Computed example of a mutant assay.
Amino acid sequence: MSTTAGNTKAYADSSGSFKRRGPRFTDRIVANPTGEGEWPAEPGRYRLVVSLACPWAHRSVIVRRLMGLEDAISLGITDPLQDDRSWRFSLDEDAKDPVLGYTHLEQAYLARDPEDGTENGVSVPAIVDVASGQLVTNDYPQITIDLGQQWRAHQRAGAPDLYPEELREEIDGVNEGVFHDVNNGVYRAGFATKQARYEEAFTALFARLDALDERLENQRYLVGDHITEADIRLFTTLARFDAVYQSHFKCNRQKLAEFGALWAYARDLYQTPGFGDTVDFDHIKRHYYMVQTTINPTQIVPLGPEPSAWLTTHHREELGGSPFGPEGSAPTPLEHPLRPLGPIDM
């Protein structure tokens, strides 16, 4: 089984450090393709496959919802519990994705490259060309940027600009530190195989969280006065912190709920349409605690923490700014949960 939540293959090197391999397929879907490796942004052509457990895939779910692309790009959701072929569609009727007809996401990877399609693992998020059944891209950082920038002709009225040109340098700088020390940092702590490597990751993680906590004391969002890519990338790790990383990955100096500004910031985002309504704590906990048996061999899933804490008052609006910018608006409420109907194997 995979040892990570949704991203690419990972391993610990001889020093005991966790290493993550990058995405295998880095084609892009763009408004005006001009060459090899570029696909047209055509509504109805693609299916976005995710796991609700996976923080890397969760980013794309949030952006798709914020941009109002539900009718343009369909969504396939995998079982949080993998088998020896990785992500499977066992929550859907007949254990097959109703659009692709696949039982496993692996099939889209092999349709794209029968020889080496799964060389770097089978990861989510993955965008699949429906007609051919071939994987287009699993480049998780680029997917969200392109959903925000390249699909503008198909976005809802009031969709925010998550990657404004004048803020890109600052957003990229924030994202780089957050990726290394927080998004990937929790994995570097959790999957380290030597004490020194764990302590290095642990120290860097909490140093970064302390810096973010200080940064957010006097500003509502990480960059600028409305939500950007930076907030989305940080949020998906924060949403899993107390439920998983604090205990399961031994990131236990303190809980997210014991921070000041950072915890209020996380609650502010959670209560913003597109964020909390895409979080599934059941999928999250079942995946981490039941799949990662090298860390949790008993596969016991903890009952806490109480999710209602995410709905408590945060007062972040007092800092000014607005979630979607001065000309933006919230996406319409979800009519039903994201999760497909069906049992989860225990």
Rank of each mutant, 00 (worst) to 15 (best):
D129E: 13
G133Y: 02
N184Q: 11
V122R: 02
D213W: 08
D113Y: 03
Q107S: 09
Q195E: 13
N218Q: 15
G185E: 07
F206H: 09
W151K: 03
V136M: 01
G177H: 15
Q149V: 13
E119I: 10
G173H: 13
E169D: 13
V186Q: 10
A157F: 10
R215T: 12
R220Y: 09
A211Q: 10
L100D: 00
R152A: 08
T103V: 00
E115N: 13
L167N: 09
R168C: 06
A201G: 02
R85H: 01
R156C: 11
W87T: 00
N218H: 15
F202P: 03
L135D: 04
R152M: 07
P125K: 01
E170M: 12
I143Y: 04
I127K: 03
S90D: 04
A95N: 11
A201D: 07
A201E: 09
A196R: 14
H154R: 08
E170T: 14
F202C: 03
E170W: 10
V128S: 02
R156Y: 09
E106I: 00
E199W: 13
P141K: 05
R168V: 01
L135E: 01
E217L: 15
A126D: 02
D92A: 02
A207N: 15
R220H: 11
D83A: 07
D83Y: 04
F191R: 06
N218R: 15
L147K: 02
A159R: 04
Y198L: 15
G148A: 07
Q155P: 06
D97N: 00
L135A: 04
A95T: 09
N120W: 09
A153E: 14
D84L: 11
T144M: 04
L216V: 06
N138S: 03
E165A: 14
Y187R: 04
L205Q: 04
A159L: 07
D84P: 09
G173D: 14
E214A: 13
A192W: 01
Y198T: 11
G185V: 05
D139I: 04
E217M: 15
D213E: 11
Q107N: 05
S123H: 00
A211L: 10
W151L: 03
L167K: 12
F179H: 12
D161W: 11
A192N: 01
K194H: 14
G177V: 14
R197Q: 14
V182F: 06
Q195A: 09
Q149W: 09
V122S: 02
Y109Q: 01
D84R: 12
Q155E: 07
L91Q: 12
H154A: 12
P141L: 09
E170F: 06
A95I: 05
F202D: 08
V122D: 02
A159S: 08
H180E: 15
Q134K: 15
S90H: 03
A95D: 04
E119H: 10
P164H: 07
V182W: 05
A153N: 12
S90Y: 00
L100K: 00
T137Y: 06
A111K: 14
Q149K: 14
G177M: 15
A111M: 13
G158C: 07
A211G: 03
A131E: 13
H180M: 15
R85M: 07
T137C: 03
S86W: 08
I145N: 06
W151C: 02
A157L: 14
Y198C: 12
A196Q: 14
A211D: 08
Q82K: 10
T118C: 12
P164N: 04
P114W: 05
L91I: 05
E214Y: 02
L167P: 07
T118M: 10
Q155F: 05
D213N: 14
